[in-house]
C-alpha cells in the first residue's frame, strides 16, 4: 500500500491558523518531523494546502519512528571480533 512520506521543512509561524490546523491534522507539530499518510484524496488535499512548507515523497512502506532513527545512525567505524567474556 503506497504512502506519502511528508516532512515539515518550513514552520507555519505567522501564517493563518488554518495552516497550523492542517499541519496538526497531518500529524506535523515540529519542523523536520516525518509522517507517513496513505495515498488518498483527502490527504492529497491537505498536502496541497501546505505544499510550500513540506517535502513529499511516495513510498511503498511506512516506517516507525524507531526504524527511521536506526536509518540515521552512522556507521560505528569498528566491528567486534571477540567478546572479552568469551576470551580465554
Amino acid at each position: 500500500m503506497p504512502y506519502f512520506r511528508i516532512t515539515l521543512l518550513r514552520s507555519a509561524i505567522g501564517l493563518p491558523a488554518r495552516t497550523t490546523g492542517v499541519l496538526h491534522a497531518l500529524g506535523l507539530k515540529k519542523r523536520m518531523t516525518t509522517v507517513y499518510q496513505p495515498v488518498s484524496r483527502d490527504i492529497a488535499g491537505m498536502i496541497m494546502k501546505v505544499k510550500e512548507l513540506v517535502d513529499v515523497q511516495e513510498v511503498e512502506e511506512r516506517r516507525t519512528k524507531a526504524e527511521m532513527k536506526e536509518l540515521r545512525r552512522p556507521d560505528p567505524g569498528f566491528y567486534i571480533e571477540k567478546r572479552a567474556s568469551a576470551a580465554p
Binding site: 495515498v39 496541497m48 505544499k51 515523497q57
Partner: peptide, 29 residues
C-alpha cells in the same frame, strides 16, 4: 522554492494517478 512546490504537486499527482484517483484541488493547480 518555486521548483520545490512544483515537485510536491507532481509527486502528489503521480501518486494519485497510480491509484486511479482524481482530486479537484490538484487538477485545478
Amino acid at each position: 522554492r518555486l521548483r520545490a512546490v512544483d515537485s510536491v504537486v507532481a509527486t502528489v499527482d503521480a501518486a494519485l494517478t497510480r491509484q486511479g484517483l482524481v482530486t479537484k484541488n490538484v487538477e485545478r493547480w
